[in-house]
Nucleic acid binder design. Structure first.
Lengths: 135, 135
DNA sequence: ATTTTGTCTATCAACTAAATAGGGAAAGAG
DNA sequence: CTCTTTCCCTATTTAGTTGATAGACAAAAT
């Protein structure tokens, strides 16, 4: 299950994708139209900005807008920023690799094979789907 | 990411699958051989038993054993018992369906399509893989 | 009876998720 | 230069979950 935060992020990005290259959108407007707590959304958009997905503009006429075409923003990117690892365990994560503290040998771990396949199944969708699919 | 509990469950079931039809195994033995806190494992095995995966036997010579052949115990079953929904959102969950509180219309939700595909990708692995693949 | 084993309930600390509060800083308008 | 608009940042709160532990209880076997 993804977090509410991730879902909010996707919904907000959907709106921003629709308005791509039509100027910035206000946090408040997105929050209202998508039923997202404004302050919470603020933090989410900021995070996406700090990871290069969004650009912001302060002051009158300001707001947030996509920094790249919607078809370049994959679900995988978004989920990794907001929720972290996509893989079911750290020991098979491509971007957040970490050793299992309870495992003795990774190569001998029969569980790891399945986890890898599970991860790949996830990625086959998430690396493929982009904001374009939400418009 | 799956919980540590789910990972412990899978590791314990792997051991039990290897000993299928060779008599019961002690909690303590499994705990020790797999580096799982004994008391924690106790709760996990009990839960698996209450969901019909395992059978238990008290007293001397007792312990836990698989109630069905390893190839009949899918990963999907195990994960659902221990971690709950496999789907990324409740609104596309087959076994734990629930409405999104922030969504207006499910049919119109463009996000939902992707979530469904994501879920199916997960299931294609998890409904296929069984304890047999760990032996 | 006693020993062995699982069963059950309760509790704990640590962490995380979700939401909120409030002042700060930059951009632009006039 | 001041006011308004907007995003930026830090802190806090509350509720819930995760992972782990403790201890009494119940059934089975010898």
């Amino acid at each position: 299950m993804i977090s509410k935060k991730a879902k909010y992020a996707l919904k907000a990005l959907k709106v921003l994708a629709r308005e791509y290259e039509k100027g910035p959108l206000l946090i408040s407007n997105i929050a209202e139209s998508e039923n997202i707590p404004k302050k919470f959304l603020e933090a989410i958009l900021l995070e996406l900005r700090n990871h290069g997905i969004l650009q912001s503009q302060k002051g009158k006429g300001g707001g947030y807008y996509l920094r790249m075409p919607p078809e370049q923003v994959t679900f995988a990117k978004i989920i990794r920023i907001i929720d972290g690892p996509i893989a079911p365990t750290l020991c098979v994560s491509l971007h957040f690799y970490g050793k299992c503290d309870d495992c003795v040998s990774e190569v001998e771990c029969t569980l790891r094979n399945v986890m890898e396949q599970w991860r790949d199944a996830n990625l086959s969708v998430l690396e493929q789907k982009t904001l374009m699919d939400l418009v």
